[in-house]
Design a protein around this nucleic acid. Structure first.
Lengths: 102, 102
DNA sequence: CTGTATCCACAACGATACTG
DNA sequence: CAGTATCGTTGTGGATACAG
């Protein structure tokens, strides 16, 4: 379990990953940033680089002006979907109960 | 999803929680620390306090000498089991693949 | 548009010593 | 045994400015 933690620790890892999974198709950087707002540019870049290194996300750069970079979840990344769905379901069911304890 | 992150972010949150879930029965502090080694005393205490505040773990203190404190997962905490099982399963399946990217 | 580069604040975590 | 206190290091994340 400890290794997984290193993967998804951090405030934004899971939200980004889940968003990419749900979308499925390639997404541009700016679009993704709006989808996971209010994440900063720096943080989104950092997380995407980490995911890329671990093979969870594929990055494609197009030699255009203005530049276009697209990110897409890989098969490995998508394999996390059932787990993250379970997570999202748990939040829907128990999120309110949990909020009371804050 | 963001609220969940606040709950289980951190290096030790998931390992501790999962261990408590698997055990099910009340566990003494020292025993738990050994089970989740090599966590420090301070960190284990801090995490358990957080879980207690959120109703995921119940804490019982016995007025004995030497003192005895037991922690047990609550029903709310146990409801996370399917999700964490899914997580553990994913790690078993893809953990090796992932390690290659480090 | 998609980044990098700084600078900064704060939380997380560890090591160690000490207490009831 | 089960903490608390203290100190120090590292990591996380935000704000802002700038570059290709």
């Amino acid at each position: 379990m400890v290794r997984f933690v290193g993967l998804v620790s951090g405030k934004w890892a899971i939200p980004i990953l889940y968003r990419l999974i749900v979308i499925g198709a390639p997404v541009r950087f700016g679009e993704l940033q709006r989808a996971v707002a209010p994440i900063t540019q720096k943080e989104l870049t950092r997380q995407l680089r980490l995911f890329e290194r671990r093979g969870l996300v594929q990055r494609r750069v197009y030699a255009e002006v203005p530049p276009r970079v697209e990110y897409q979840i890989t098969a490995l990344g998508s394999s996390l979907r059932p787990t993250l769905d379970s997570l999202a379901g748990w939040m829907r069911t128990h999120g309110q109960t949990l909020a009371a304890g804050e």
